[in-house]
Amino acid sequence: MATRSFKLRLHVLGSKLHKWLAIFVGVQVLLWMITGALMSFLDIEEVRSEHVVSRAPEVLPADAVMPHWLDSSEGVVSLATRAVGGRAVTEVRRDDGSVTLRDPDSGILLSPLPAASAQAIARYAWTGPPTTIATTRLIEDAVGTEFRGPFPAWQITYGDEDNTRVYIDASSGSVLAARSDTWRLFDFVWGLHIMDWTQRDRINSWWLLLFGIGGTIIAVSGFVLLANRFPRIRRRAKHVPNAP
């Protein structure tokens, strides 16, 4: 009898915990479902106002001061002096998206960067424990989902335990992306989360929208069922005195 009584109390306690936790956790789950379905329905270009606001850089005016060695100022949107691989360079960007690096004094073309310069950039960018550079290769095509350009780019792989890789723009010397085995695991899980198993960047697929709507219906119906499980307060019937 004592064992049965203990099991009964344990069952009642577990039922109460399940019921109340279902309310608190269920509210957040319902919000996840509703907001997830809403984000899947919205067009990301409209969210960013890309359909009405141009982000194209403004071309420098014709009378802007240009270096004497610049062969053509047509379409130039920016001139900047910065450090690449431990040396000062002048970066020239044009409205067609092209980027070239030149010597600030002579104007000698420095890009595309050689492997030695890319390795120097990678060494400077590394802030982890001491390591070496395992491999260096020039890539001109997408590397799965972890890097999609611009090309050409240098892929520098470090000799650390996480197999960290950096992608360096061969034209500008900029570090475009840093990837690792941990990133690959996250990328795989992210693809499962947003139900995009190939591109990993589509958050408004019909699959995700349908499952988001379905999850919302399940969550709402669960609240209805949960409400029906609550003990009803029985009101005492009011006795009406008989008329004389």
Rank of each mutant, 00 (worst) to 15 (best):
S49F: 09
W69P: 07
S73V: 14
S49R: 12
A62V: 00
A56M: 13
H51W: 10
P67K: 06
H68K: 13
R48H: 14
L70K: 04
S49V: 12
A56F: 08
A56T: 15
E74W: 02
D71V: 15
V47K: 03
L60W: 03
R55P: 05
S49P: 00
M66W: 12
L70G: 08
V53K: 14
V77Y: 08
L60N: 02
D63M: 03
S49H: 14
D63T: 10
L70H: 04
P67M: 06
V53D: 08
V59C: 01
V53N: 08
V52H: 13
S54L: 08
S72E: 11
V77E: 08
R55I: 13
D63A: 07
S54K: 09
V65D: 01
V47A: 00
S49M: 12
P61G: 00
A64F: 10
S73E: 04
D63Y: 05
P57N: 07
R48T: 12
S73N: 11
D71P: 05
W69G: 02
H68W: 07
E50Q: 11
P67W: 04
H68G: 05
L60Y: 06
V65N: 06
S49N: 12
S72Q: 10
L60M: 14
P57H: 03
R48C: 07
V52W: 06
V76M: 02
P57M: 07
S49T: 10
P67R: 04
H68F: 09
W69D: 00
S72N: 14
R48N: 11
R48D: 09
P61R: 07
L60G: 00
P61M: 04
S54H: 09
G75C: 08
R55H: 12
H51L: 14
P61N: 02
A62G: 04
V76L: 00
H51K: 14
V59S: 01
S72G: 07
A56Y: 07
A62I: 05
D71N: 11
V52T: 13
V52P: 04
V76E: 03
E74N: 11
P67A: 05
R55G: 09
S72D: 14
A64S: 14
A64W: 08
L70M: 10
S72C: 09
V53H: 09
L70Q: 03
S73W: 05
H68A: 10
H68I: 13
S54Q: 10
W69A: 03
E58P: 06
S49E: 13
E50Y: 12
P57A: 06
G75W: 01
A56N: 10
S73P: 05
L60H: 06
L60C: 01
V65A: 08
L60F: 05
E58L: 11
D71R: 15
S54Y: 08
G75K: 10
A64Y: 12
H51I: 12
L70T: 09
V65L: 00
R48G: 03
P67C: 07
V77K: 06
L70F: 00
A56D: 10
V53S: 06
R55C: 01
E58Y: 00
H51Y: 05
R48F: 04
V47M: 04
V65G: 00
S54E: 02
P61V: 06
L60P: 01
E58R: 15
